[in-house]
């Protein structure tokens, strides 16, 4: 199927989203809640584009809009610029403590607004929830409604599902998820985990539930292996070298 994006004609498979098609063609559309690993969520609306079908013009979220017919797409118009600037303004107002938002707020020359909570850095992109889902733990989700909406564990208590893998924090674009690693323990989402210690280098890595989870998921058995990923790689390289 043929579509035109910013005047460039490209051939696209039916069902691909506009965002995927554009990125493949080297056209960048800004996003905040998108990750290739999880697919489009339609949450941040930064990726809004203008779609023309026949005489009809409308704005759609490119990350969730599947291409099913011949369309003409514009990704950079004054109206879209205003939408993006306003979205950044709104997210800066929500999360003034986030370095990412501070920077974007400057870059987009946004209207002046006052942050609601100076300590806040979460922009509610939900990438953490998606990551947790993908890991298979499903320990966190969004709770409440409207501006009260936030990501949390059930009842803000430690969740039996959380394995302390910190995939959520690793995915977070604004560093809003607190992870404290101290004295061989990792604390995350109201829960404290004993960390695994590498018997070779002595460095801390991962948590026991993570190892159990991975073992179970991959049906792997590294029962007596207590090495950090780095030392394990070295050990493997040495073993392979010896076999040769």
């Amino acid at each position: 199927m043929k579509v035109t994006i910013d005047g460039i004609e490209i051939e696209v498979e039916t069902g691909k989203t506009i965002l995927e098609a554009a990125r493949e063609a080297g056209i960048d559309i800004p996003t905040l809640c998108y990750s290739e690993a999880f697919g489009g969520q339609g949450v941040c609306r930064m990726c809004m584009v203008e779609v023309k079908t026949g005489n009809r013009k409308r704005f759609v979220a490119s990350c969730t809009y599947p291409i099913t017919g011949e369309i003409e797409v514009q990704t950079k118009t004054p109206e879209l610029e205003e939408i993006r600037r306003n979205i950044i303004t709104l997210l800066y107002r929500r999360a003034p403590n986030s370095d990412l938002m501070k920077k974007l707020y400057q870059d987009y020359s946004c209207s002046e607004v006052k942050g609601v909570d100076p300590e806040e850095s979460c922009i509610m992109c939900r990438l953490c929830v998606k990551a947790c889902e993908k890991v298979g733990a499903n320990a966190i989700s969004t709770v409440l409604r409207g501006t009260e909406k936030r990501v949390s564990t059930p009842f803000d208590e430690e969740s039996p599902e959380c394995i302390g893998c910190s995939a959520c924090a690793d995915t977070c674009p604004t560093g809003a998820i607190r992870v404290v690693e101290e004295g061989g323990r990792r604390e995350i989402w109201h829960k404290s985990f004993e960390m695994l210690r590498c018997e070779k280098c002595g460095g801390y890595y991962s948590t026991l539930p993570v190892r159990e989870h991975v073992t179970e998921q991959l049906e792997l058995d590294y029962a007596d292996d207590s090495l950090c990923p780095n030392c394990r790689r070295k050990k493997l390289a040495k073993e392979v070298a010896e076999v040769r």
């Binding site: 306003n86 709104l90 997210l91 409604r145 501006t147």
Partner: peptide, 18 residues
């Protein structure tokens, strides 16, 4: 509407609040 927004998307959740 600010309290009834589901809070999923930014323009509604944050925009109505502004």
């Amino acid at each position: 509407l600010a309290s009834e927004s589901c809070g999923k998307c930014v323009p509604c959740r944050e925009g109505i609040s502004l």
